[in-house]
Design a binder for these strands. Structure first.
Lengths: 109, 109
DNA sequence: TTTATATTTCGCCAATTGACGAAATGAGTT
DNA sequence: AACTCATTTCGTCAATTGGCGAAATATAAA
């Protein structure tokens, strides 16, 4: 129960849901996500922490950066992500995904 | 996105998650649920409103009472409910389900 | 070892949430 | 028509949340 409560709490916030959805495009670091959604570093970092503690994403050091990526190891999370695949056609989601594609951390971080 | 945000918000609260889980046993009215979870009528009523507006449950007048029941019409909701079926073995969930079974509205409402 | 910088943590604030009891509503029953 | 009672709405309050910038941390690079 606690596990799913954390997952639902994490996804019940619009900013965090957007982050999870845009991580479908590719793993990203804090400043890339910050660039896409426009909130401050600290806000993004805090959201990532909540999503990570819910088990939805994992983090991995890569050079100077920490890559956050969807956790496809957990079967419960996979099922949730499958449901999230229904969310694709909304303007804001498409736009985030587009930005994620063209965003290059070498230019903005 | 808005639809799933509402669903996740609804399920991201422990009391509301408990209510949804116990409605798997049978449709119930406000006072039955109140009896099981121990919160006030107004609190239960408000939670039910939020869950209903998320599309997870529907309501139906039956004699003097309003029965709240899981909305199995919506396929998105059905998938969520399928995931919730993983939540079964926790003490509080079992206990709520047990109470739901033995609770008779004719005795408490 | 010092510097640069990506990330996290902290303290603050405004807005939202979840609880309550009391009052209002509304649909059967008398 | 008046009454009963299940339910909803309202106002209040404490706790939580989500945002921020500044300071702290940690890790690569020089």
């Amino acid at each position: 129960m606690e596990k799913y409560l954390k997952i639902f709490k994490a996804l019940g916030d619009k900013t965090r849901l957007r982050i999870v959805l845009m991580l479908r495009v590719k793993p990203m670091c804090v400043c890339e996500i910050r660039e896409i959604i426009g909130f401050s570093m600290s806000t993004v970092s805090n959201h990532l922490k909540i999503i990570k503690e819910a088990g939805i994403i994992t983090s991995e050091k890569k050079d100077k950066f920490i890559n956050y990526q969807l956790n496809t190891e957990d079967s419960g999370v996979r099922e949730i992500l499958k449901i999230l695949n229904k969310i694709n056609n909304e303007k804001i989601v498409k736009n985030d995904a587009r930005k994620a594609l063209i965003t290059d951390r070498m230019n903005i971080c």
